[in-house]
């Protein structure tokens, strides 16, 4: 049996129905454990004080903001190449979740920046890149909302997502070039000296898992909604005709 069969709308509804509560449950458990661990049980950093606890929200949401866009890019490509409707709908479903993650990353970053850098907003490359990503999400969602015909909308937004990805990447490098940053280097690589210490690292991993699971659960839920909306539309069209 081919993997693609899971993308058939009817099959998709079939297997996601039972999976959904488990996904939400697992996401809830991971987030509860990770955030509780991070908020109550980790020590303060010697330089950052208690603001280090914001990392448990900032890093996972920033990761998911980018991964959500990547997922939309892959889904758009699958739609353009293989014409699986579920794929286009999943891309549409992921955008609002992605923009929420971007917003969380931006706001927690701003709140953290105030005591640490002395300002809510600095035109730091990473902050600026996220603001640009936020604009791209807005444009993508606006284009979906503006077109009536669902297949045309799926096609056009897919092309926009691909072209947008190229330009988002370009913006990332342009912004890096334009202003050197305040951000520290990688905090999550496996072999670096400047890695965050284990005390902070394990709850962070749990939080990241929680955000990933929550994203998956939300995208499944929203995709199911989109499939139902599509089916409803087809039924209504048929009723009008007869």
């Amino acid at each position: 049996m081919s993997l693609w069969e899971y993308a058939n709308p009817k099959k998709f509804m079939g297997w996601t129905g039972p999976v959904l509560p488990w996904a939400f449950g697992a996401a809830g458990v991971c987030l509860a454990v990770g955030l509780f661990w991070g908020f109550f049980l980790t020590p303060d950093d010697y330089r950052q004080g208690s603001t280090v606890k914001i990392i448990y929200l900032h890093v996972p949401s920033a990761l998911m903001a980018i991964n959500a866009w990547m997922m939309m890019l892959v889904a758009s490509l699958i739609w353009l190449v293989r014409r699986h409707h579920v794929s286009a709908l999943a891309a549409k479903a992921a955008a609002p979740v992605g923009i929420t993650m971007t917003l969380i990353a931006l706001m927690t970053g701003a709140i953290w920046g105030q005591p640490m850098w002395g300002t809510y907003w600095a035109w730091d490359p990473r902050l600026t890149s996220f603001l640009i990503l936020f604009l791209f999400y807005l444009g993508y969602m606006a284009l979906w909302a503006a077109i009536d015909d669902p297949d045309t909308a799926a096609d056009l937004t897919s092309v926009l997502c691909i072209v947008g990805s190229v330009f988002a990447l370009l913006s990332r490098y342009a912004v890096n070039f334009w202003n050197q940053g305040l951000h520290q280097g990688a905090s999550l690589s496996l072999d670096k000296e400047e890695n965050v210490s284990d005390v902070f690292f394990f709850p962070l991993l749990v939080c990241i898992a929680g955000f990933v699971l929550l994203f998956v659960a939300l995208v499944l839920l929203r995709t199911r909604t989109e499939i139902r909306a599509r089916r409803l539309r087809a039924l209504q069209l048929r009723e009008v005709r007869t």
């Binding site: 640009i132 606006a142 072209v163 330009f167 988002a168 913006s171 490098y173 342009a174």
Partner: peptide, 10 residues
Amino acid sequence: SLLVLPLYIP
């Protein structure tokens, strides 16, 4: 404008 302006950034 909303679609094109972010593309103009680089």
